[in-house]
Design a protein around this nucleic acid. Structure first.
Length: 429
RNA sequence: GGAGAGGUGGCCGAGUGGUUGAAGGCGCCGGUCUUGAAAACCGGAGUACCGCAAGGUACCGCAGGUUCGAAUCCUGUCCUCUCCGCCA
């Protein structure tokens, strides 16, 4: 959420920003600028009346003690009381309308983000590693996996429907090895604190981190009795919300968290995209990095977070590129996003395997995550950052496709072998 | 699922419906004293919003209600804790 005061004073900038993102202002709740003017007028009137109410209340008390008559004053104050109620009701309506309007305005892109309407305007920052060469035609993972008997889409469809997968034997083991490898790297070498968060969160949490109210359709929702809970689409949600409503000390920052969690996405609107294989599922695993930082350090922290995610790819020996997303391709919460795209021989293309963003103070304002720079300073909003480190399923895809052999077997990358009981190669049977 | 207890400022903990943003204690910050520290004493110290300012308003889990006036009374709701049952 953007700061109301800033929005009110910078109408042109808001509209310009929305245009850069290929969005436009949602006026269904009313014009925020007009609403704010009404809000201020109401507030002043209400506060003035309440002041009067208090002062007169004291006078009534005094007369009571002095055994003087206060009947007339009481009657008059009854009218004031009613007027306050009326004005307050309207004020609540206006404030709610402003809030709803603000909640669907996306974050302001950082000045360093290239302008553009879609992915074609993204900027490749660097390529690392060379795609492997094969003396045979490399095959897609959705053929390799089932043939090796380690991935099963048909049985998954039988028990859960489309967009699910079952992993068995070495396929399951490889998933777990990747998770352990990533967690060990981030916790032992990169200083992240591991967290096991809830996978079900309240609607309020989803609102605070920006998934709601706009993206309800992307989420899985549960209802038990009259209680609604959402399955997390990423650990970013619980981790970012962790310090909601808190005022941290400067010495508490930065916070570096890492979580391994399942992620659940309805993938509404992605019909026909990546329908085969492990690329786009309703359920997948992700090792997620989340940072809470000061505004001054968030950009540097974003760069280092990208480096942390890259390190996973480097050690796995996978070729990738780093892409800076343009204004039109960024997510709702983000002020600046780098995607990591891994080379997939089966698709003959680079595909997203990580997305690292700084959300500046956007989520922090929604969730009230603040810190005090100095002992008596006013609280300021922290900056929140999140990035995949990495999407586990897609990493498994990359390994199958990049390490495949002519006979259909898959060599286990060196760094994963200790996590695979020394297994060097995944073969049929 | 059943039974009970409770939610007040960073923490603990008072609070007869009327200067209570809220006693007291601890912790914290500044000062006095001290070579320094401790102790003692004095003072300070929440968050947000409106206002050019002076200043004002709100917040005692949350939402309503009663009242001229609610932290205090009433209703609902959420959460926490204890015991029983069930369960990994």
């Amino acid at each position: 959420m953007l700061d109301l005061r800033w929005v009110v004073e910078n109408r042109a900038a808001v509209e310009e920003m929305l245009a850069a993102r290929g969005a436009s202002l949602d006026l269904s709740q009313g014009d925020p600028w007009a609403l704010d003017a009404e809000r201020r007028a109401l507030l002043q009137k209400v506060e003035q009346l309440r002041h009067r109410q208090r002062v007169c209340g004291e006078e009534i008390a005094r007369r009571g003690r002095a055994r003087e008559d206060a009947g007339g004053l009481k009657a008059e104050m009854k009218g004031v009381s009613d007027e306050i109620k009326t004005l307050e009701n309207r004020l609540a309506e206006v404030e709610e309308a402003i809030r709803r309007a603000l909640l669907v305005i996306p974050n302001l892109p950082d000045a360093s983000v290239p302008r553009g309407r879609d992915a074609s305007a993204n900027v490749e920052v660097r390529r690392v590693g060379a795609p492997p060469r094969f003396d045979f035609k490399p095959r897609p993972h959705f053929e390799l996996g089932p043939e090796l008997g380690i991935v099963d889409f048909e049985r998954a469809a039988k028990i859960s429907g489309a967009r699910f997968a079952v992993q068995t034997g070495a396929g399951a083991r490889l998933e777990r090895a990747l998770v352990d490898f990533m967690l060990d790297l981030h916790t032992r070498e990169r200083g992240y604190t591991e967290v096991v968060p809830p996978y079900l969160v309240t609607p309020d949490t989803m609102l605070r981190t920006g998934q709601l109210p706009k993206f309800e359709g992307d989420l899985f929702k549960t209802r038990t009795g009259d209680r609604d809970l959402y399955l997390i689409p990423t650990a970013e949600v619980p981790l970012t919300a962790l310090h909601g409503d808190e005022i941290l000390e400067a010495s508490d920052l930065p916070k570096h968290y890492v979580s391994f969690t399942p992620c659940f996405r309805s993938e509404a609107g992605s019909y026909g995209k990546d329908v085969r294989g492990l690329i786009r599922l309703h359920q997948f695993h992700k090792v997620e990095l989340v940072k809470l930082t000061t505004p001054e350090t968030s950009m540097a922290e974003l760069e280092s977070m990208v480096g942390d995610a890259e390190e996973v790819l480097r050690r796995l020996g996978l070729a990738y590129r780093v892409v800076l997303l343009c204004t039109g391709d960024m997510g709702f919460n983000s002020a600046k996003t780098y995607d990591l795209e891994v080379w997939l021989p089966g698709q003959d293309a680079y595909r997203e395997i990580s997305s690292c963003s700084t959300c500046s103070d956007f989520q922090a304002r929604r969730g009230s995550l603040r810190y005090r720079a100095e002992a008596k300073a006013k609280p300021r909003f922290v900056h929140t950052l999140n990035g995949s480190g990495l999407a586990v399923g897609r990493t498994l895809v990359a390994i199958l496709e990049n390490y495949q052999q002519a006979d259909g077997s898959v060599v286990v990358p060196e760094v994963l072998r200790p996590y695979m009981g020394g297994l060097e190669r995944i073969t049929k049977g």
